[in-house]
Design a protein around this nucleic acid. Structure first.
Lengths: 263, 263
DNA sequence: ATCCTTGTTAACGGTTTGTTGACACCCCCA
DNA sequence: TGGGGGTGTCAACAAACCGTTAACAAGGAT
């Protein structure tokens, strides 16, 4: 879900936009000062920032500079001033679009889609690595490197049996050629549910995620009590991703509370 | 130097903008029709396109679609129409910004800098190759090379029967002459829908594309649930493009999630 | 020691997907 | 105006996949 930070000092505008954007499926975070905007952008890490230029504590261009110092998040300016000088200043400071009030909500939404579209395509795709596993959240792709030292280990267990859920039509195939001393990199095929679970966990690196949160985000609110799903699927993920599934090092259990992804 | 393609049918505007942009250090290419814009974009490969919506030969949104079919070059719309409906249509078709006339040249230049700032980082080759297939996104053309080793194989199966979905009036004809040791290269004819599907997939190489995204981009938002279209058309594409359509290596299914183009 | 939570494995069956074929529509052409 | 090839849409069936469930083992806490 796209997360939008709205920065405006007029409560009624803030409220109207929050309602509108939430109704369109955006996740909304708000701030009503420039300083609040900068700290909210750092903590909430929004996908888009909507910034009103007429803030009480800071000049709008200063806010843009403050953001651009460390992030390339798309910034859409809302302003009552339609003068060319203001637009040029804001755009050259690093804003991506400039809309003058009054504006239509449809136009705002279309412009948000436009900047989000561009913003989403570029930039380092969010890649998470742990152990020998690489998770590409944008491409929905998981790869796992296997040591080639002994040459025989790999997706096939020591007993030669195909481990359940790996191989068997799911894997695309080896990328490496298996030559001695080289690493083999295999695609790890995850089902929709497995992927959803892994996504939630790696999105909160190092943090404890409660069972309830996992169940609602992956299965839906009605599954809040089906904790055995978590056990089954954590087991599957560990089988596919952990070097020693019986002694997980990255997908950890916090008994009585939930699970934790340890990078 | 940044190359800008200006598309407008009013000579005086064309002239004024050419002078202004050249004075600012831009290289300027012009076109005064939609068709001319598409061919100029393909041959001149501009860094930015400035597009007037009121062209005589094509609807502006069609031009945007024609460009977005193969390139992500930033598109800035100029239009006399300020209605929300026009803006939304153009932006959702893939435009990056929308400026209503009359406009200040300073604002235009600032918006060009804003889109160029982001656009310069990407840019993909309009030609995609995988296996024996070459996809030219700019020319809307797909070719497939056949091994000439045994001399008899090709679009005709070993039993002499025309393989379903290829050939059968679709192929334009052999380009190669079939001499021993040479490769034969055949045009692969794709229908509009097939092309749209392939375009979306190869535009996101290696990434998973959800069923919803494919359906909305190729068929439209109202077809979001018609997943059987995807199955039918993926089958057709595999028949035409995969060496072994039953075991696709490049047009892959991710069960429950979507499809992936694997270069 | 016993109970509760968690881990592990296997199997069933519904759902999704692949595949084929039929049919209506449209445009071009005679 | 009628015919025919090409295309989009839809239905039906087979096959593969994966969510769900069950059963039991293991570990830890009270």
């Amino acid at each position: 879900m796209t997360r939008v930070l709205i920065v405006d000092d007029e409560p009624q505008i803030l409220r109207a936009m929050r309602i509108n954007l939430r109704a369109r499926g955006y996740e909304v975070v708000v701030a009503d000062t420039g300083a609040g905007a900068l700290s909210a952008a750092a903590s909430a890490v929004p996908d888009i920032v909507i910034l009103d230029l007429g803030l009480p504590d800071m000049d709008g261009v200063e806010v843009i500079h403050g953001l651009r110092g460390w992030t390339r998040v798309p910034i859409v300016i809302l302003s009552g001033r339609a003068e060319s000088r203001d637009k040029v200043g804001a755009l050259d400071a690093g804003a991506d679009d400039y809309i003058t009030k009054p504006f239509g909500i449809d136009e705002l939404l279309a412009r948000l889609r436009a900047v989000a579209r561009r913003g989403g395509e570029q930039g380092a795709s969010p890649i998470v690595r742990f152990g020998r596993v690489t998770v590409d959240l944008a491409a929905h792709r998981v790869t796992r490197a296997w040591p080639a030292a002994d040459g025989t280990d790999g997706p096939l267990g020591a007993d030669g049996r195909v481990s359940p859920g790996s191989g068997a039509g799911g894997d695309v195939g080896d990328v490496g050629d298996g030559a001695a001393g080289e690493e083999r990199v295999d695609e790890v095929h995850l089902t929709k549910t497995e992927w959803g679970l892994l996504r939630v966990l790696v999105s909160h690196p190092g943090k404890l995620v409660t069972q309830r949160q996992l169940l609602t985000e992956v299965w839906g609110a009605r599954y809040e009590t089906e904790t055995h799903y978590l056990r089954t699927y954590l087991n599957r993920l560990r089988q596919k991703l952990e070097d020693d599934p019986a002694r997980p090092r990255h997908l950890l259990t916090e008994p009585g509370m939930g699970y934790r992804f340890q990078p």
